[in-house]
Structure formats: C-alpha cells, structure tokens
C-alpha cells in the first residue's frame, strides 16, 4: 500500500484499540459491551492487514497466540459465570454504588474477557480471508 495509508493506519491503530477497550470496560454504564468492543478492535486489525500485508500482522500476533488468548479468556469467563470462589455476588454488589466505574459486580470483568473471545474469532477470520 501507499506510504500515507501505512503511516496513518499505524498512527490510528492504538487509538482504535483504546476506543475498543473503553467500550468494553464501560459496557455496564452505557451502550456497549463485549461484542461491539471486539468488533471495533478486530476492525483495527483489518485496517492493519489491508494497509500492510497479512504476514506482517501475523508476525506480531500469530494464530497460536490468538488461540492461547481465547483459551485463557474462556477459562476466566467460565470461572466468573459459574461464580467459583465467591459465596455470593451480593457481597461485591452491595459495596458498590450505581453509575460509578467500579460497579456492576462481575459485569465489567465479564465484558473484558468476552472482548478477547470476540477479538480472537474475528481476527482469525480476517487472517484466513486475507491470506487467500
């Protein structure tokens, strides 16, 4: 691709990541959540893949690393959903105030872990489609 496209996408990529993480960790306070956040971050990766080549991007984030990320995020999700290690969530929720950042019990953590699962699936699809 053109050098302008390369430079601009390289500069823009961290901000896309930041915006996606913001959408994920504020999912319990406003519109958003794990699925839109993962889609936004995967769009950032799609931008990199289009501006550079697929091999350049995959050199930095390989498929095996993606699958590892997916596994760890899945284990965290299972632990959080099954409520392992906590007697009840009311102990956490009762100490928090509504509309503050640390509220919502496990929902921000669940959003954050679910974001990684969406990222891995979509980025793997992007890699596979762009390689052909």
């Amino acid at each position: 691709m053109d050098v302008i496209v390369k430079s601009v996408s390289r500069l823009l990529f961290p901000f896309i990541l930041l915006f996606g993480v913001y959408i994920a960790v504020h999912g319990h306070l406003g519109p958003g959540g794990a699925f839109p956040a993962g889609a936004i971050i995967a769009t950032g990766f799609a931008l990199l893949v289009v501006a550079y080549t697929e091999a350049d991007v995959e050199h930095n984030l390989t498929r095996h690393e993606l699958i590892d990320m997916k596994s760890v995020a899945g284990i965290i999700l299972v632990v959080l959903i099954l409520n392992i290690g906590y007697k009840s969530r009311f102990d956490i929720i009762s100490t928090q105030k509504l509309f503050e950042f640390w509220s919502g019990g496990f929902t921000p953590l669940l959003n954050f872990a679910g974001m990684f699962m969406v990222i891995t699936a979509l980025v793997m699809i992007i890699y596979t489609m762009m390689r052909e």
Partner: peptide
C-alpha cells in the same frame, strides 16, 4: 446485578451460559 446498563446485565449476568 448492580449494573446501570440493563442489556449488559441480562446478557452477562442473568444469561451468562447463553452468552458463553
């Protein structure tokens, strides 16, 4: 759930297995 966004509360807390 203690979360202000009720959609997210339903998706992740009430129906966590479904979302998984």
């Amino acid at each position: 759930t203690g979360s202000a966004n009720l959609v997210n509360a339903i998706v992740w807390d009430f129906r966590g297995y479904d979302t998984l």
